[in-house]
Design a protein around this nucleic acid. Sequence first.
DNA 1: TTGAATTCATTCAATATTCAACTTAATTTG
DNA 2: CAAATTAAGTTGAATATTGAATGAATTCAA
Lengths: 158, 158
Amino acid sequence: METENGARWLSDEEQRTWRTHLEVSRLLTYQLERDLQPFGLTYNDYEILVNLSEAEDHQMRMSDLARATLQSKSRLSHQITRMENAGLVRRENCESDRRGLFAVLTDYGWETMKRVAPHHVAAVREHFIDLLSPQGLESLQAALEPVAKHLRGARGRA
Amino acid sequence: METENGARWLSDEEQRTWRTHLEVSRLLTYQLERDLQPFGLTYNDYEILVNLSEAEDHQMRMSDLARATLQSKSRLSHQITRMENAGLVRRENCESDRRGLFAVLTDYGWETMKRVAPHHVAAVREHFIDLLSPQGLESLQAALEPVAKHLRGARGRA
DNA sequence: TTGAATTCATTCAATATTCAACTTAATTTG
DNA sequence: CAAATTAAGTTGAATATTGAATGAATTCAA
């Protein structure tokens, strides 16, 4: 039950749970991505729309948006360029910090969000939420929140 | 509580749980990927090594491997080419079906696996398993297994 | 207050992924 | 059994992502 250098292997139950979590997380992303395809959006596009939609004035600084969506600045920069070409967002200068830029939701972006969100939520229900019992929901949150907290911290200590 | 087209939004608790799950799944992948970097492996590399290590004769058909690791045949093909160049696997013809190929773990691939696995397992413990209480572990499995089952099915019905 | 370090964001080149087209082999069917 | 269909896998071009380098504005510190 110990590896040669002293690390402890996973028990059968631990391994099963770990693999289930992994599988769910992969298949779910895959499925939700597919449910967004008919609307011409990737999951990444959608997440950015969500963030901007919930932000004050429908705008966020590039850095904040990158942090919120867990992507590198470089990746976000490309991503926003694409979404800009698609008419969903635009860049706007920041007066208080002239290095900075805002990504701003366009009217079309906001309309798109309002149109797509119900379908996305329905998919989240169908493939996840509605498959959990009330206790399932509750215990999931209870189990995962500490993990999330730990990982948020670990992310900083890069 | 209803969207215009009749879909039901998520309750606060549902939303919280959903977002926590999403966050954990993203940050965890990110973290494990980072823990593998010092060994010169991506998570994708590692998963393929795991699959081959557990397979009979350390070999699998390309299609099966693609299915097991949830990637397209094309992606796997490129991936295996890279791993072949890195000396971790090799391709071998399949006699019974001459269209087919096996991806086979090389000695070096197997040595790599034995060397890296303990560190990976330790990371899985540190960032996930050891943060769950015994009930946490159990209820997680209980909650997620039906979701996994559902999604496995949905995947087929593409 | 000036020079050094940091932050914001982009760009370019190297990698990786996707998608459609293709080749070859196996299977089906009329 | 011949033609059509399906399956296994690869390829190449288009697209996306990564990581290092860059430029420009801000902050820090002596």
